[in-house]
Simulated assay, not measured.
Amino acid sequence: MSATRVCAVSDLVQDQARRVEVDGVPIALVLDAQGEVHAIGDTCTHGDISLSEGFVEGDTLECWAHGSAFSLRTGKPLNLPAYEPVPVYEVTIENGDVLIDPTAIKQA
């Protein structure tokens, strides 16, 4: 599968998550303070909650429901109650557009 355009970089708000869906795969996009775009699975592994409704702090995305924070770089949970990681997807920026391939999962 090839990468799919999900939005323009200019559509993203720094330190806020945005939910997109590619081929039925929910993904949370985050533009961090350094200008890097991250894409992680949008479903918290603890409570089946949308992570894009959570809070961005540094390089983490925190689930609003139970407080588990996930690394935007590795997908690993940094605290309980979650103990399973979420997938992290490769992000490509072309001509100001964000492209994601939901089958291209980064290896931590």
Rank of each mutant, 00 (worst) to 15 (best):
M1C: 02
M1A: 09
S2F: 06
S2D: 13
S2N: 11
S2G: 08
S2V: 05
A3M: 05
A3L: 02
A3N: 08
A3I: 00
T4Y: 05
R5S: 12
R5V: 15
R5M: 13
C7H: 01
A8E: 13
A8V: 01
A8G: 12
D11W: 04
L12Y: 10
Q14V: 15
Q14R: 15
Q14L: 08
D15W: 11
Q16S: 14
A17Q: 06
R19H: 14
R19T: 08
E21C: 03
E21Y: 00
V22P: 08
V22C: 09
V22S: 03
V25C: 08
P26K: 10
P26L: 06
P26W: 07
P26H: 07
I27F: 03
A28Q: 04
L29N: 00
V30A: 01
Q34K: 12
Q34C: 02
Q34S: 13
G35D: 11
E36T: 11
E36V: 11
E36N: 06
E36C: 04
V37H: 03
H38K: 01
A39F: 02
A39N: 06
A39L: 04
I40T: 01
D42L: 03
D42C: 05
D42E: 10
D42V: 07
D42I: 05
T43G: 02
T43K: 08
T43D: 03
C44G: 07
C44V: 05
C44S: 07
H46I: 04
H46G: 03
H46W: 03
G47H: 01
I49L: 09
S50N: 10
S50A: 10
S52E: 04
E53Y: 11
G54Y: 03
F55Y: 10
V56D: 01
V56E: 01
V56C: 11
V56P: 00
E57N: 13
E57F: 07
T60I: 06
T60P: 01
T60S: 12
T60L: 12
L61H: 02
L61I: 11
E62T: 15
E62A: 13
E62D: 08
C63G: 03
C63W: 01
C63S: 09
W64F: 15
W64Q: 13
W64I: 15
H66C: 08
S68K: 03
S68C: 02
A69N: 07
A69I: 10
L72D: 05
R73M: 13
T74E: 12
G75D: 12
G75M: 13
K76A: 15
K76H: 13
P77G: 10
P77E: 09
L78D: 12
N79E: 14
N79H: 13
L80M: 15
L80P: 15
P81L: 14
Y83G: 10
E84P: 02
P85H: 09
P85W: 06
V86F: 07
V86P: 02
V86R: 05
P87E: 12
P87M: 09
P87N: 15
P87W: 07
V88T: 14
V88W: 01
V88M: 07
Y89S: 03
E90D: 13
V91R: 01
V91Q: 02
T92H: 10
I93Y: 04
N95H: 06
D97G: 00
D97K: 02
D97H: 08
V98H: 03
V98E: 04
V98R: 01
I100E: 00
P102I: 04
P102M: 09
T103S: 15
A104W: 04
A104R: 10
I105T: 14
K106E: 12
K106T: 11
A108T: 10
